[in-house]
Simulated scan of single mutants.
Amino acid sequence: MPDQLDFDRGKRPRTVLQGWYGHPFHPVLITVPIGAWVASLVFDVLAIFAEDPSGFLLGAQVLIAIGIVGAVLAAVVGVLDYSVIPARSKAKRMGLLHGVLNSVALVVFAIGWFVRSNAGHDEVSVAAVVISLVGIALVGVSGFLGGELAYHFGIRVAAEKDQAEGVAQR
């Protein structure tokens, strides 16, 4: 079982790529793929009601590509954050599941991008929309786990002592 010193080490970055103490980059970077993928779904819905859906469908495909690039960058930093979680802890197991779900979501969106490429931009592809919905669901579950890692386990969050000192200062 990891001791408190292991968990305190887990709050500190190993490299500047992770951000600095108490300010991890991973939570900032994940906003890119999540925002792009949710926006792509909004474009799909707009395309359903548009007289000419081609612009919305092309936009959705571009947003998915942006999300894929952003997800790869977030994954690199996420792996670095994962590396500081104490071994054989519940947080380590949850972090692994979080990473696996995000990796599956990334593959799902990549498949969706290829489906959209082959379908063209003349009409809405039901398969592409369903694939995006599956990807969004995976990201939602994984995001819940990521929130647990940060807010419940305090992974890469400043130590409680430092938080208390900051709140107490006037």
Rank of each mutant, 00 (worst) to 15 (best):
V45K: 06
L46S: 14
L46P: 10
I48W: 12
I48H: 11
I48G: 06
I48M: 11
I48K: 05
F49Q: 14
A50C: 07
P53S: 05
P53F: 05
G55P: 03
L57P: 03
L57K: 03
G59D: 02
G59Y: 05
A60L: 10
V62E: 06
V62I: 15
L63T: 05
L63P: 04
I64F: 06
I64D: 13
G67S: 05
V69N: 15
G70C: 09
V72W: 12
A74Q: 02
A75N: 08
V76F: 10
G78T: 05
S83N: 14
S83D: 15
I85L: 00
I85R: 00
P86M: 13
A87Q: 12
R88P: 08
R88W: 15
S89I: 13
K90M: 14
A91L: 07
K92L: 11
R93L: 15
M94P: 02
M94H: 07
G95K: 08
L96S: 11
L96W: 13
H98N: 03
L101Y: 02
V104G: 00
V104A: 01
V104H: 00
L106G: 14
L106C: 09
V107K: 05
A110N: 00
G112A: 05
W113K: 10
W113Y: 15
F114M: 14
F114C: 04
V115I: 10
R116H: 02
R116K: 11
A119G: 01
G120N: 01
H121S: 14
S125I: 04
V126R: 14
V126L: 11
V129K: 13
V130T: 02
V130H: 01
I131A: 08
S132I: 10
S132K: 10
V134A: 02
G135R: 11
I136D: 06
A137M: 03
L138S: 05
L138Y: 01
G140I: 02
V141T: 13
S142V: 01
S142Q: 00
S142E: 01
S142W: 01
G143H: 03
G143D: 05
G143F: 06
L145K: 01
L145C: 03
G146N: 00
G147S: 14
G147M: 08
L149W: 09
L149A: 04
L149R: 03
Y151Q: 12
H152C: 15
G154N: 09
I155K: 09
